[in-house]
Design a protein around this nucleic acid. Structure first.
Lengths: 144, 144
DNA sequence: ATGGACCTTCCCATGATGGGAGGGTCAAGA
DNA sequence: TCTTGACCCTCCCATCATGGGAAGGTCCAT
């Protein structure tokens, strides 16, 4: 399978497949004489694996680890579970943070007349409000 | 106030203050003869405004709009409210998406023994699982 | 043989932020 | 007055995962 066929088979764009090659995450099984990438079932499954893992919010860093465990037939499931659990904790933390934002804004919006007049508690809050204690250093990944 | 004093007064890093200048969001009141940026109360308040708005998850794009409404004494509060409500809806959508991820992973992790054996339902899911229907095109902003 | 649909590499952009180099400026103490 | 250290300046580069696009080579069906 060339890159276009692999892309169709996995739903991963050709661009991304080339990127995964570049970062040594999934290399093509071989190259044709004319330098076209060739993928077989092994890589196709790995690309699907990555796609699914991304859709669950794992960073490429985590996926690199997961993929290496996946390739290792003797892996202890403990290690896989640890990565998943860390990611869940991470998700939960972000969720809590975003819920706090949404709740604050819902309250402010509720107090705002939303008409032609200029008085607006939302702007007032932005002018005077203290932001929450811990700005929460965000792990650089995860935006999708 | 020079940039360092403004930074201390607002909690916004000097780097970011320079960036806001560069993108014409908050320009210094003036420059000294030696080209140092000078800020006065007006800009200090605007920087605080931005910091607070960022902490509520607004993108720079949205903050640009909010700041321009803030500067406009005659703004209709309707416009402010509309921006806030859109942002809340956006937050809620992300939250729902991340909760779905976390729930899926929690289930998989719960089913994983997490011991020395290689069998792992998490990896099995990543191999076979279908990802959710709508990959959800992410608005480019907001990762922090 | 031609044309269109592929493929290749290379470069650039995103958004908000930080790091750092290389060089100028200021103020306090000797 | 000179030195020193703490500032400030601009400019460039990196992040992370992804997409856009240019310039050029390849393959296949007509």
């Amino acid at each position: 399978m060339n890159i276009g066929q692999a892309s169709k088979a996995t739903g991963v764009t050709a661009k991304m497949i080339r990127y995964y090659d570049e970062i040594d995450l999934v290399r093509p099984a071989s190259r044709t004489d004319s330098n076209y990438r060739e993928y077989d079932d092994r890589q196709i499954n790995e690309l699907r694996f990555i796609k699914r893992a991304r859709s669950l919010g794992f960073s490429m860093e985590e996926i690199t680890q997961l993929l290496s465990l996946w390739r290792d037939r003797g892996r202890p499931s403990r290690e896989v579970k640890a990565i998943a659990d860390r990611h869940v904790a991470d998700l939960d933390a972000r969720i809590a943070e975003m819920q706090a934002m949404a709740n604050t804004l819902r309250h402010l919006s509720h107090c705002c007349a939303g008409d032609d007049r200029p008085d607006c508690p939302i702007l007032t809050d932005l002018t005077e409000g203290k932001e929450p204690s811990e700005p929460a250093r965000r792990r650089p990944s995860f935006n999708r």
